[in-house]
C-alpha cells in the first residue's frame, strides 16, 4: 500500500486515528504453536505419503482406462439378475442395520449420561465401551465379522449394527447433555423411579433430535452398505468389487452411478422428513 497524503482512506493510513486506536494485538502463543505444529505436521506427513507435485501432475494428466470408463458408464448392468438382487440386499441391510443399531443406541446413550446413570463407575464403563465402538470404522467391523461369522449378508448386518450404534449413541448423548433439567426435577419431585423419570422427562425432550439422528444414520448406512461388500459382507459392494477385479470399468461405474443416484433420491426424502421432525 502507498503511504499517501493524510486523509486518503487507505486501510493502511492510520495517521489521524492512530492515537486513539488500540494497538493491534500480536498472535497469541497458542496461535504460534498450533500454526507451527500444523506446518511441521504437513511437512512430515507429506514425506510419509511420498507427496510431490510433479508426480501428482504427471499421474493425473496421463490418460487412463478408469476415467474413460467413468465417462461412458454402462448402465445395463443394473437390470441383470444378480446386480439387482445385490442392489436390493444393500437397501435391506441399511434399513435393518439402522433399526437394530438405533434401538440399542437409545438406552446406551441414556446410560452414558449423568441424568440416566447416576453411578459414576458404570457410567464410565459405558462411555469407554462407546468410545471403543466409535473408534472402529464400518469397513473394519465388516472385516471382523466376515472373519468371525463368514462371508454374507449377516456379517454386513452385524457390521452396520455396530456402526449405527456408534453414530447414534454419540449424537444422542451429546444432545442429552444439553436437556432442560426442569422436567427431570419435576419428575423426581413427584417420586418417579429412574425409568419413569427417563420415560416422561428425558426421552420426550430428545425424541425429535433422536429420530432425526436415526434418519441421518440411515443415510450413512446406505453409503456404508455399498462399501462393506468390498470385503465380502454382502450388498452391491460385492458386485462393484467383482467388476473392479476384472477391470470392467464401464460396468463398475454404471453400477456406482446408479447406486448413488438412488442414494441421493432416498436422502432427499430423508432430509425432508428430518426437517419436519426438528
Amino acid at each position: 500500500m502507498t503511504s499517501g497524503p493524510v486523509g486518503v482512506a487507505s486501510p493502511e493510513s492510520r495517521v489521524d486515528g492512530a492515537a486513539r486506536l488500540p494497538k493491534k494485538p500480536g498472535p497469541t502463543p497458542f496461535t504460534i504453536v498450533t500454526t507451527l505444529g500444523a506446518v511441521v505436521m504437513t511437512v512430515v506427513t507429506a514425506r510419509a505419503v511420498g507427496f510431490s507435485f510433479e508426480g501428482l501432475i504427471e499421474n493425473l494428466t496421463r490418460p487412463n482406462s478408469v476415467v474413460e470408463g467413468l465417462l461412458n458408464p454402462d448402465f445395463s448392468q443394473i437390470w441383470s439378475e444378480r446386480s439387482r438382487a445385490a442392489f436390493i440386499e444393500t437397501l435391506q441391510l441399511a434399513v435393518l442395520g439402522t433399526v437394530a443399531g438405533a434401538s440399542v443406541a437409545l438406552p446406551l446413550a441414556l446410560w452414558s449420561t449423568r441424568v440416566g446413570n447416576p453411578n459414576t463407575f458404570l457410567r464410565s464403563i459405558v462411555r469407554i465401551f462407546n468410545n471403543i465402538v466409535r473408534a472402529i470404522p464400518d469397513l473394519l467391523w465388516a472385516l471382523i465379522f466376515v472373519s468371525a461369522v463368514g462371508i454374507g449378508a449377516l456379517s454386513g448386518l452385524l457390521a452396520l449394527f455396530f456402526f449405527s450404534l456408534a453414530v447414534t449413541t454419540k449424537l444422542t448423548s451429546d444432545v442429552l447433555d444439553g436437556i432442560d433439567p426442569g422436567p427431570v426435577e419435576a419428575a423426581n419431585a413427584s417420586g418417579a423411579g429412574l425409568t419413569q423419570m427417563l420415560r416422561t422427562a428425558v426421552v420426550p425432550q430428545i425424541l425429535p433430535s433422536y429420530s432425526s439422528f436415526v434418519l441421518y444414520n440411515f443415510e450413512l448406512n446406505l453409503r456404508s452398505s455399498a462399501v462393506i461388500g468390498l470385503v465380502g459382507a454382502g450388498g452391491i459392494g460385492e458386485r462393484i468389487e467383482f467388476f473392479r477385479s476384472r477391470g470392467e470399468w464401464e460396468e463398475m461405474w454404471g453400477l456406482v452411478v446408479m447406486f448413488f443416484l438412488v442414494v441421493m433420491i432416498i436422502e432427499a426424502f430423508s432430509v425432508t422428513l428430518r426437517r419436519r421432525l426438528v
Binding site: Q92, L93, V95, L96, F145, G152, L154, L158
Partner: peptide, 16 residues
Amino acid sequence: WSFIGLDAKWSRLLDA
C-alpha cells in the same frame, strides 16, 4: 420388508 427379504443366515446369528 427388509427383514423378510434379507437372505442372511439367521441361524448363524446365534453362533455369532
